[in-house]
Amino acid sequence: MAKTMAPQKATGPALDPGLVRKLLTDMLLIRRFEEKAAEAYALGKIGGFLHLYIGQEAVAVGATSALRPDDYVISAYREHGHCLAKGSDPKRMMAELFGRRDGLSHGKGGSMHLFDKSVNFLGGHAIVGAHLPVAAGVAFAIKYEARDQVIVCYFGDGAVPQGEFHESLNLAALWKLPVIYLCENNRYAMGTSTDRALAQTQIWKFGQTYGIPSEKVDGMDVFAVRDVVGRAVERARRDTTPSLIEADTYRFRGHSMRDPAGAVYRTKEEVEHEKERDPIALLRQRALAGGALTEADVRAIEKDVSDRIDEAVAFADASPEPPAEGLFTDIYKEG
């Protein structure tokens, strides 16, 4: 139950250029997707609630890089990054945010309810804490059928005081289920800081209470996340051991687009200070310093990502509204 806090320095072992390219591409893809989503929201093309993942990209990308494609992922309502990292198509995701026919759920889910069965992405759940028992159930089914997959369940620090967090950890530990509970501690549940919400702010320690391996990790360091999640995945796959991981991260934007600056409950200085830990900037620096990528490589990746997101927006724009009969389809599964 080691605490993995120290970020690895550029002086560490040589980086695998292929891996670095993949991680940087995926993190940039999330960042650009979110930036475009914010623009589209301002233009009224996206409605309702929109919760951006900007600042937290290293968690989704680092964790997913430790998974097999057939492993499962489930998340809360700040889930665009997790869905993209799992390999979902940005075009269909953007179309879903736009409420269009070609969205992942044909426009019936929206930003908070992305689902993509083709990449084993199990949603998009917007009642805080409610998907944690569901993740335990997925792990239960994996074990029931003696398969060797695992599930990563992302949630925020806001879910920790909920009863379902504790019910889920208890069941996962009691029944030894192959689930990795990955708490993205971005320090604020909407506007409530962890020290105003939790008697125990070291969230990883709750894992010790339930007797499961638990660690804290620098959530701005994609390699550290990959490393910690990788070990948790290995334990889960080997003998269905559950884990709790607390990733220390930060959201650079507000809670949602209705809280654009996030300025009431935290200072501008704090936000600016945290932006010095920007996980994408850190990875870029490290990749260049270690020689894994050249400036030209990075520019090419940025161009490619930017093109793919522009394509996603164009696709979403071009997709028609869902047909009226969609209102009454998929309420019940027929046959």
Partner: peptide
């Protein structure tokens, strides 16, 4: 833990049990 084990049922059902 009614919420917990009902959620377990839902998750297991999502995978086809």
């Amino acid at each position: 833990c009614e919420s917990g084990f009902t959620g377990v049922g839902i998750g297991a059902a999502m995978l086809g049990l």
